[in-house]
Amino acid sequence: MKTHKLFENGSHSWLMFGRDDDKPEQIIDTNQYLVITKNNALLMDPGGIELFSAMLSAVIKQVPADKITHIFASHQDPDIISSLGLWDQALPSSTLHSPWLWESFIRHFGMKSITYAAIPDEGNSLRIDGVNLEFIPAHYLHSSGNFNVYDGEAKILMSGDIGAALEEVDAPLFVENFDEHISKMKMFHQRWMPSNSAKNDWVQRVRKLDIDMMCPQHGRIFKGDDVKRFLDWFEALEVGLIANSG
């Protein structure tokens, strides 16, 4: 599991974890993110059960366990949060922020001690040590209850499955050539995303945000102009398709 620092200023930092060499081959590679503030930390989309040891090991190298007070799960998928039963044993007094829609489903992963903070459909925000993190609605992209995390100070949008690409485990962290990158994203977005109107609604919402980096849960991070390129490409893309997905 590799760790990469995406952002740092006086108040907080963003870390990305991923490109796990030890991961079993049949498992989709995932990116996990951590925001560290003065006394707290938010762990985002901590990943599947198969990844838990690698993730906790990587995280514990950065912060003490009791500092990880918040967890975020953008939606209910196993690659996002099936490790919950184990985090529950490691971080029993933490709070999980996740869509209200999935609470009774996510609890199936085993959650005895962690507190579930249900995010309403319209989204809300989390303020830790003066750092404001907004949960931006991204429903039906792909999950019917789904959120992104936006940090206006760092200008980072953690976009979950939006912008995801199916890549080799040793792929670079950042998109280098957007046009070449399209072929790795197209099928994923057309096949997993069900709704054009939800997609266009999200594009409009996100265009209003000031974004330097868009960080998906699979594949590469979009930087600078590639963020706008992604939004244009995604807006024009027809989703909810099973055929012609080459």
Partner: peptide, 29 residues
């Protein structure tokens, strides 16, 4: 099974992150 499984994962983390300055923050749990 769940408890055994969690302990196993903890052991794994203690090995993988043995050089971390924060490794003992896991001890209490």
């Amino acid at each position: 099974v769940r408890a055994d499984n969690a302990i196993e994962h903890f052991h794994d983390v203690y090995v993988r992150a043995k050089d971390s300055p924060f490794i003992h923050s896991l001890d209490a749990q």
